[in-house]
Amino acid sequence: MNIVEVKHLKVWDANTDKVIIHNSSFQVKQGSCLAIVGESGSGKSVTCRSIMRLNKPWIRLSGTILFKGEDLNQLSEQEMRRRRGKNLCMILQNGMSAFDPSCVIGVHIRETLQTHFNWNNRESERKIISAMESVMLKNPQEILNQYPHQLSGGMLQRIMIALALVLEPDLIIADEPTTALDTISQYEVVEQLIRLRERMGCSMLFISHDLGVVQKIADEVMVMKDGAIVESGDIRSVFSKPEHTYTQYLVTTRLELSNHFRKLMQEGT
């Protein structure tokens, strides 16, 4: 069964009439993780925002986006809003800017939980704190009273994951969640995302241009270039036998890099 089915999605900018995504179709299977790979400007983020229906007003789209069999484009704004966060949860690239800079972290979390659950403040706090502990955040109580600029990018990323844990969504959309991080935080965040999937069995749409990370987390992969899907399928088959020249290019550069890295490591020891 597919949790998300996108059919003939076309997205364009009404101001300039430029087409951003050409006739694209794909699906995310229940419980699996689909990675979208491609360079910046290839339409990965716009695809995600189209599912969330959070594109800028001048970005228009046609085609159908089915979520659990329901056409998201037919929903009213209010029904859509009820699904955001609760059913479709997003994790953004840059934790630093994802939280209101003039409020402490707790404000966003409290507001989100109030919107979706009828918990009182004590109950929400208890749940988020235990979720934060489970993503290895120390002193969660203290973190809730801190401003975004007082925390590191990796911590903020894990706070977003913790929030997703509490919300228990059906689909998590992670838009380049590791790109802005250093290698160690990257590792921690990827670990937490994998554990998140294990724990909740939710589906995931994972956007990245880091093939190493994709290989670790995704079951299926879809390669985008200039607003079109050039290749898709099971992760192992795509990576072992890339058909499209662009995918071949991506995979070989990735191999070269890791070979280079391995060589360096060997020379070091």
């Binding site: 966060g85 479709l88 949860c89 953004l92 939280f99 209101d100 003039s102 989100t112 919107t115």
Partner: peptide, 27 residues
């Protein structure tokens, strides 16, 4: 800003999102 996107993506009402924007703009 990203926080507006994340607020909306978390399902916050338009009124709450606008209050966050106002708070930061009025600063």
């Amino acid at each position: 800003e990203d926080y507006v996107l994340y607020g909306r993506a978390s399902g916050l009402s338009e009124r709450k999102v606008t209050l966050h924007i106002l708070r930061n703009s009025l600063q």
